[in-house]
Nucleic acid binder design. Structure first.
Lengths: 236, 236
DNA sequence: CGACAACTTGACGTTAGTCAACCACGGTGG
DNA sequence: CCACCGTGGTTGACTAACGTCAAGTTGTCG
């Protein structure tokens, strides 16, 4: 924890310029004098695995920049079914709805230990009118979220179980920093892919038998991505 | 066609203020003097059913406001499968990626005869820096698209065939102006719900037998929405 | 009126869901 | 330190749902 102590508020102007996530986050490219305008406190927070960052329909006053870990956004249906709509990682924004004044659209729950910056939405909205860079960053983040959401529909909710699981593995592997990648629990994968835990488990077992996937500890795995891509006929 | 003749360019400053779609579209709440800044021509276009508005990976230079009709956004997978990612209707924006300088992410194809305004992206981007209203509108439209996309994942790609079809019917009925609503072809519905045309056909037939749905001409239907909601256990 | 496309229906096969038992691991407390 | 329990994961047998293949039927447009 190099930036600030857990849960301690600090001034963005002092600390943001030192933040290792900044270059890929919302405040990338902001000029120092613009950062200085953010006089209102920004909180750095750490959540343990399983903790909830915010809940659906809650009044949305903050947006969050994810520094580290994996965060799931999920929605429920009246019929009891449940769906994970996106996974967020380093650099992603959670709670975008805060900026348009809507309530939060999802439950946001940490899949691993995560660290976030908690930013008052009104500050971002205000600054987005003054800083062209932030304005652009914001639009880009939004577009990225939309693209991801669309991709999840096509890649992760379409076709037979095997394809879906493989496409998820590819996505996880390609969004990982090192060779081992984080692999969610079977139930969570089920809720990402709209499959049961048993089906996910069986499919993972198959992939292991075929030598396409190697488990490495409880929530971690390694794969030959180009082999996986052949299965779903993606260009390498 | 009250606004302008088909394919004829015209000046936004003159015509936009008369546009019946404006209040729900991108340029809502813009001040007359801001509209005047849009000296660059905006085209009004009509596309027939089946025509393509833009294609995936094409350089995205324009965004489109949909005045009338239904537009589908679809994506293909290397494995040959195909998915409709969203349906757009009156007031929706197509080609948002143009603003962030990306290429188009989908094929956009008219499901009915449609009319659109074709707006150069650079104008919108430029004006969004100057007009707080447009800035806000833009963020709202983006948020709306994201919400819709997430909803499609949870509601239309989750659960048994019957539920999916019913949820689609509800969505179509609630987004329609009058009691009859537009109902896409069986194949398109299949690509929205990730089901085969046969399954969709059978499910529609069931709903008709149960008296929950009434067909009215080729691409039109009528339903008792509250009955449909009971099926999927949604509050009325 | 004919031709084609969209839709429907049936019989059958396959895949994924269900139900249930079992196993592996990690943490807790005796 | 080890026995116990709980959670998450695996595996099997069976079932239900959906996909596939194929033959009809309806509707639409030239």
């Amino acid at each position: 924890m190099t930036i600030a102590e857990n849960n301690k508020a600090f001034l963005a102007s002092e600390e943001c310029s030192l933040c290792p996530t900044r270059e890929i986050a919302l405040f990338a490219n902001l000029k120092p004098e613009e950062l200085l305008q953010m006089h209102s406190p920004i909180q750095y927070k750490v959540l343990e695995k399983g903790e909830k960052l915010y809940a659906r329909n809650e009044k949305a006053d903050y947006i969050y920049t994810l520094h580290d870990g994996v965060l799931k956004l999920e929605q429920y249906l009246p019929s009891g079914e449940q769906r994970i709509v996106r996974l967020l990682r380093r650099g992603d924004l959670a709670g975008l709805a805060a900026i348009t004044g809507d309530n939060y659209q999802h439950d946001a729950i940490a899949l691993t230990k995560i660290s976030v910056c908690k930013i008052p939405a009104d500050i971002v909205l205000d600054l987005s009118h003054k800083s062209p860079e932030l304005h652009t960053n914001l639009l880009n983040k939004w577009q990225l979220a939309l693209t991801t959401s669309d991709t999840w529909i096509t890649k992760l909710s379409t076709g037979p179980a095997r394809y879906r699981v493989v496409r998820l593995m590819i996505w996880l592997a390609e969004n990982s920093l090192d060779e081992d990648f984080y692999m969610p629990g079977r139930e969570d994968m089920g809720n990402i892919l709209s499959l049961t835990t048993e089906t996910v488990s069986r499919t993972i077992a198959e992939l292991r038998r075929d030598g396409d996937l190697e488990l490495r500890g409880s929530n971690s795995a390694r794969a030959d991505v180009s082999k996986l891509k052949k299965i779903v006929k993606e260009p390498t």
